[in-house]
Computed example of a mutant assay.
Amino acid sequence: MNALQGIAAALTPMGLIWTAVLLSVATFLHELAHYALARAQGVPVRSFSVGMGPVMLRRSWQGTEWRLSLLPIGGYVEIEGMAPEEGPDGQLRAPTRGFAALPAVGKIAVLLAGPLMNLLLALGLMTTLFASQGMPALDRARIESVNSGSRAEALGLRAGDVITAIDGRKLPETVQTDGAPLAGWESLRSTLEVAGQHVFTVLRRGTEGTETLQVRFDWRPTVDGRRQLLGIRYGPDVQPVSVPTAFAASVSNTAQAVPQVLRAFGNLFGRFLTLDISRDENVSGPIGTAEIVSRAAALSPWALLQVAIMLNLSLAFFNLIPIPGLDGGRILLVLLGALKGRPLTFSQEQAINFAGFAFVMLLMLFVVVRDVSRFF
């Protein structure tokens, strides 16, 4: 199978359609937030484009030209006063109107609105997911299936049983295995690596209520050199939660994700500087993203919702990185100007923005090359 066949096999038509939809919605709302905060402060917005590249459809409304562009890979807004303007002599000069005339707080509000919108959208989708599907209880192991003829079947374990304690000890929220944190329910595997008598405390829900069982058994991890299996498939016990609880959990999960995202981006920058194109599971390019969406689309709408959450969180965090050319970089320049008591000169800001834009473009090219290289 050549590279093109490999790429085609990894993607599906519905996956590509859903990728375009998810990216377009995330980008549209991101740019809409920039637009709304600019207009709220009286700053004109010349154009608003959904998509990039050649314009297929345009309409003027409320002083803004609304565009639908060919490539569903992003979008943009042209806010007056954010780009250089042409002087009487034909030379570019620093803008003096619109965004440029706003105080520092107003500028930061416009720039921060986009990433904040993606963050709020991710929180809203995560809250919807938890409130609708329930939340995993990390300190419980729910048996999803029992193999026919297995040791688990002989012990009387059933699908739907919930293991709450092992050998009289409740499962913790998290455990450490080789220095890596795992959910408590995942410690069941390590328990079965220890020979001897074991006791599972099991909750069994029935039509007449819930009963607690003590399942005792003698266990040997290996017999005659062959590894023994209990014969169950298990995961966390999912429990229904209220909307406020779901929202609180969404905020907590997002806060916990920040260090992981920062490490992933830090690793990406390190690989970029050393030109290391080996595969990295933590950051995906366009093909990798479409591949993930393709798999999610084949599973369920809830799986697609999880991907939408990840996309919006990634877009929010990436745009807040203080690199000129991104929202975070622009916010940094505004803060530097405020600390100096005057904005940076036109030439300084142009040079910094150009360098930042070039860096971002090279970084994106690197991600695409690394994404494609795994098919060769």
Rank of each mutant, 00 (worst) to 15 (best):
V45R: 02
L336W: 13
A141N: 01
T289P: 04
A36M: 12
A100V: 12
A355V: 11
W185E: 00
F200N: 07
F318W: 04
S187M: 08
I163G: 01
V105R: 15
F317Y: 06
P301Q: 00
P181A: 00
F359M: 15
L344R: 08
F375D: 06
N2E: 13
G106W: 08
A101H: 03
P259M: 04
Q91I: 14
Y35R: 01
V367K: 02
V215G: 11
L203C: 03
V50I: 14
D327A: 03
L332Y: 09
S24H: 06
G225P: 02
Q350E: 15
M364G: 12
L332H: 10
D178V: 07
L57N: 11
G124T: 10
G225L: 00
G98S: 05
K107L: 13
V25Q: 07
D178F: 10
T27V: 15
R226V: 13
A20C: 12
L16Q: 08
L125S: 09
L155W: 04
G114A: 09
L315T: 06
Q306K: 10
L129T: 03
Y35I: 05
G53T: 12
R58I: 05
G168W: 01
D218W: 03
Q306D: 09
L68S: 11
A8H: 12
A358V: 11
S148L: 12
N147F: 11
R370D: 15
N282Y: 02
W302C: 01
P322K: 07
F217V: 06
R226P: 00
D161F: 04
V334R: 10
A9G: 11
L275N: 09
S132E: 10
I277H: 10
T174M: 04
R279D: 13
N282M: 02
A131V: 08
G51C: 10
H198K: 04
F28C: 09
S252M: 02
A104C: 10
L333D: 15
G206V: 04
A165Y: 01
A303L: 03
W66D: 13
R227G: 09
P103H: 00
R226T: 13
E85H: 10
A101Q: 02
V372Q: 02
R204M: 07
F130N: 05
V105H: 14
L230D: 03
T345P: 12
G98D: 05
V105S: 14
